[in-house]
Nucleic acid binder design. Structure first.
Length: 280
DNA sequence: CCGACAACCTGTGAGC
DNA sequence: TGCTCACAGGTTGTCG
């Protein structure tokens, strides 16, 4: 599902429409997500104003004010493998709910947000404002698009890790937001074989990887993310990055750079794609 | 601590 | 047409 670019694209489109508006009603049609949607969430959210829409890793965060409750807090959403949000701006006609539309957020100016997730690996929980980072977010590594994501620190994070670099790149304690599509894509751009033991990469290659991860994610955000099966942008349209992929999903097809057939292998149960000529 | 794998769940496409 | 199997963008827990 959605990796960092898809969540970022979703956050941006929500941000412009719901920031500063109050949640008038929250409805839950199926609580069975990765963690159950809390039974009291409707009351918890009612009347609160969304102060800020943020993204951390693949989590979408709606910071809310107290709105008549004791204190503020943050609504934490995750789209899992198959989740997406659909935003209906004020005044547009509402189509009927689809199968797997599990949650609805109605805002005071008439905007409606629907959470859709066939596989129900997603998440919707409330974190009261405290001094502590919510547990779900506490163990997360650096944001790849922040300045803190640097060759030196990544090299340090990979120290002693014998697992393939592709798996290490997908470990949220190393760097957040890089999932199965963009791990293969970033390694192609960096010219690094996905099976290379992570600790064997020198600073020069790690620096290339840092740049490649950034470039891959930024390009994907600009393209509106990747739509393979379930993901859609908040207006229901598809992202386009899947058409720009160098290697993901292209087994047997010619490398866009050198023409050699793209290879596929399986690492830790996940499909990996690479070019054996461009990546060493 | 590290790494590999199963599990969570539904849908889809391939092959028979 | 229909059955079975493999596989799909993530995360977490368990086992070696």
């Amino acid at each position: 599902m959605p990796e960092l670019p898809e969540v970022e694209v979703t956050a941006r489109s929500l941000r412009s429409v719901i920031t500063g508006h109050c949640i008038e009603a929250f409805r839950c049609f199926d609580r069975r997500l990765r963690q159950p949607v809390p039974a009291g969430l409707s009351k918890t959210l009612a009347g609160r104003r969304v102060v800020e829409v943020r993204r951390r890793a693949k989590y979408l965060l709606l910071d809310c004010d107290a709105g008549g409750h004791k204190s503020g807090g943050t609504l934490i959403l995750h789209l899992g493998m198959s989740g997406s949000l659909r935003l209906f701006p004020p005044g547009v006609a509402l189509p009927p709910r689809r199968k797997h539309d599990h949650l609805e957020f109605l805002f005071d100016h008439g905007a409606l947000v629907r959470y859709h997730d066939p596989r129900r690996f997603g998440l919707c929980v409330w974190a009261p404002a405290t001094d502590e980072t919510p547990p779900l977010l506490a163990e997360l590594g650096p944001e790849p698009l922040d300045d803190a994501f640097q060759a030196e620190s990544l090299r340090q994070a990979l120290h002693g890790r014998t697992a393939p670099i592709k798996n290490a790149l997908m470990d949220a304690r190393v760097v957040v937001g890089v999932g199965n599509i963009y791990a293969s894509e970033a390694l192609f751009r960096a010219g690094i074989r996905p099976a290379t033991p992570a600790c064997r990469l020198g600073l020069v290659r790690v620096a290339r990887l840092v740049d490649a991860v950034r470039a891959t994610l930024e390009d994907a955000i600009a393209a509106g993310g990747s739509s393979l099966r379930d993901y859609a942008k908040t207006d229901g349209s598809d992202g386009w990055f899947q058409n720009d992929c160098f290697v993901y999903g292209r087994a047997g097809e010619p490398c866009r750079r050198c023409g050699a057939p793209i290879q596929q292998l399986r690492q830790a149960g996940r499909a990996t794609f690479y070019c054996k000529r461009c990546q060493r």
